[in-house]
Design a protein around this nucleic acid. Structure first.
Lengths: 224, 224
DNA sequence: GAGGTATGTTAACAAATTGTTAAAGGATGC
DNA sequence: GCATCCTTTAACAATTTGTTAACATACCTC
């Protein structure tokens, strides 16, 4: 299991990211203070560091610099607020590998984390299967009977969320928070509409769902 | 067996790297003097050049420049001491492919050599084909139905990036970073404009792209 | 089974993304 | 300098996607 170190002083964001990462199968270590984060990065040897630009104790920039100076090559993603005057070049030069501007969609963040991990530690790319469907996350390709089928971005995001959280009932709120992100607030019915579409595209018989099950009064559950 | 040319005036380091390379199955050619190294790079056509920044005879920077000026595309890794004021961007601009700061771990050096060879070696004498198009990377020639067609530098760069990253969705940011480099900041729409041009020049039917596909909400994907 | 609530489904509109063109500015070569 | 080509971006068109309302159907409680 891969460990992600999250250094951010915004508690709610930190928790959001923490929950997200755990859901997606990562081991998340959450730290508030910059200096403490730096030390954890050294000791813990996480697989990836997610660090806010503005931090108490030690800035994100400083953390990057110090880690690289210590020849720690752990991939780093910098989080920055819209207001911050982010110098993209500077960030990359001091050793950051990528940066994300808040507010960001959680799916986007995840995609970047995955992309970065893949870039730095290429592993066997994972392909999910259920019934006659096949989902290749690296290629972002979904197919049935070997034929590719098109999913819209939100359909795809919803699908990956289900794939990473099988067998567990997921409330619409959980789904909205994870798939749509913390900055948008669509109606919970939007989830239903998208589940319908996933069923139509991926269920052998959309009228008798075998994989995208509804849990009455709760939400939905995906079983592979 | 792949040959690596090592140009460094530090004898002990040169030997260390030489032994390391031999152990790992490379053919290592060790040179002390800059000018001699440059000549060997021309004559020997090694698969990769490892060159120190400070050298007697001819500096590493000069070697890079001259090789590129002579249209020698051999991948180059520059070694630099901590003290050197290394301008990463400058190094990459003059044609170096990667750089490593001394002192470095041998494993890291090896990893970078392998990564670079993997990135560049498949190009050797390789000709790509799709539909009625043919791309010869060595000759930098693109043709359809045997007739040469002209691509602008950025069109060509974008094309080679697609060729090297087939099947996988590539975001506009990834494309910008890889093709334009992170020292320039064009609008992401610039990518779109160039994709349009590639389609016009290379797609059998530009209105129904079969190779340069858009992945809505994400970016583009090239399928050969 | 009745009533109330939850979910399925569809279509229409709004919003976002992408395609395309043209033109301004830059670079390059003569 | 001039002409030419290239890059970039603005602007608008075309397309795709997201969201929600509305109604239909299913489920649960009593």
């Amino acid at each position: 299991m891969q460990t992600v170190l999250v250094i951010d002083d915004d508690e709610s964001l930190r928790d959001t990211i923490g929950v997200l990462l755990e859901q997606e199968g990562f081991n998340a270590v959450l730290v508030e203070d910059g200096r403490e984060g730096f030390e954890k990065a050294l000791l813990l040897k996480p697989d990836l560091v997610l660090v806010d630009l503005r931090l108490p104790g030690m800035s994100g920039v400083e953390i990057c610099k110090q880690l690289r100076a210590a020849r720690i090559l752990t991939p780093i993603i910098v989080l920055s607020a819209v207001g911050d005057e982010v110098d993209k070049v500077l960030l990359l030069e001091i050793g950051a590998d990528d940066y994300v501007v808040k507010p960001f969609g959680t799916r986007e963040l995840l995609a970047r984390i995955r992309a970065l991990l893949r870039r730095t530690a290429p592993d066997a790319h994972k392909v999910f299967h259920f019934s006659d469907a096949e989902i290749d996350l690296d290629r972002r390709m979904v197919s049935r009977h070997g034929e590719e089928l098109k999913l819209t971005p939100s359909e795809y995001n919803l699908l990956t969320y289900f794939l990473h959280n099988p067998d567990r009932p997921l409330t619409r709120d959980m789904i909205l928070n994870s798939v749509w992100g913390y900055q948008s607030f669509p109606n919970t019915r939007t989830v239903d509409a998208h589940v319908v579409k996933l069923r139509q595209k991926l269920e052998p018989d959309p009228n008798m769902p075998r994989h995208f099950l509804t849990v009455h009064g709760v939400g939905y559950r995906f079983v592979p």
